[in-house]
Write a protein that binds this DNA or RNA. Sequence first.
DNA 1: GCAAATTAATGATTTATTCAAG
DNA 2: CTTGAATAAATCATTAATTTGC
Lengths: 209, 209
Amino acid sequence: MPSRWCPTPEQVRILEEMYRGGIRNPNPSQIQQITAHLSLYGKIEGKNVFYWFQNHKARDRQKLRKKLIIRHQQLLRHQQPQNHHHLLHFLEPPPPPPPVLLQLFHYNNSSGFLPQISNDTAKWRVDYHLPDQRREMDKYYATVMRTNGSDWRMMMMLDVSPTSTTTTTPPCCNIVNNKPLKTLELFPITATGLNDDKCTTSLLDSTSN
Amino acid sequence: MPSRWCPTPEQVRILEEMYRGGIRNPNPSQIQQITAHLSLYGKIEGKNVFYWFQNHKARDRQKLRKKLIIRHQQLLRHQQPQNHHHLLHFLEPPPPPPPVLLQLFHYNNSSGFLPQISNDTAKWRVDYHLPDQRREMDKYYATVMRTNGSDWRMMMMLDVSPTSTTTTTPPCCNIVNNKPLKTLELFPITATGLNDDKCTTSLLDSTSN
DNA sequence: GCAAATTAATGATTTATTCAAG
DNA sequence: CTTGAATAAATCATTAATTTGC
């Protein structure tokens, strides 16, 4: 059993297609749909989809930045040093040209799930090398999804898998991944667990001093 | 209805107590317990607890950094310029002195929930101003919680609130925050929603150029 | 060819930054 | 100004590619 999700080629293909289609920060509902669909091609959970988009977007952006820097430096070589920051502003960011077509999902908005999209999209400056200055380019990519209600990302993590490893996913909320939650006892304020952070003070091994 | 959680003084007091007690990154199980307990004092969800600890830790750290910088600069003024990085190493980070006592929780580890704690805790250098170098201080704070199973953070978002606004939390997984998930239709690959990112191309307002 | 050793990709977490309500 | 909420960046960790010596 692998310790992490290993997407099938089909799954990757579909995800990339969606990405190219313009999906960047799928909302919980979208994640549910995507997960349901992709689970036809192999084991997958909502969080995998969530992470995939996060990583893919981040690394896409990263690649773009490198390209921009390289191009910038090339320009520096070919021209005299003069206010090159402005040049960068004309290097439009390739990856997500504000996509309008090929929206892959639609669903009932009646339940109030759909977030409002703030529409201050147009501005996307790059401001690359100015240190200590916010790069506006990021804002272009930045999601503006603001979920109205209280759903949030819990929903996106719900497992949808129709792939039957066990019989069927039990419909009871007290069971998560076959583990009953059992509403643990309230606050035995005695110290025992040490299950937190690295706050273990395991000063046992006296390697230092 | 407030748009965000507004903790009661009691809740804050308890949370701070826990924080001082050493809790930094409560795992899902802990979050559940905390939420359950704090819901006695007012409306609260798991994510509130989650965020509270994240923010409190981050801002604690932030304050510490400022203090360190200030003290560092004071030292710079009082002494001749000479290798002041070393000095920083003796300014031990106040907030979480590896806490051992006052562990607020314990619970059955039989279900395999408890993560192993890596025990390379002792080292915590500060390396503050060395640029391009990883600050080891962060590693001290860094959580090492690695959940074994597949629970992950879904669980932490589960609402525990016994405060009855509605009757009781319905035991069915298809209902989240009173909103039925209704298993949306699978993939009508027609374009409609535009519910994604800022990818709206709302070039309507021609404010620029 | 074929493993062990290295390196590159990429899934999963944590931390830093930002936004915005009050 | 404080702080809850959310997203993006940085990092960690594991798997896959690739290289290397035999």
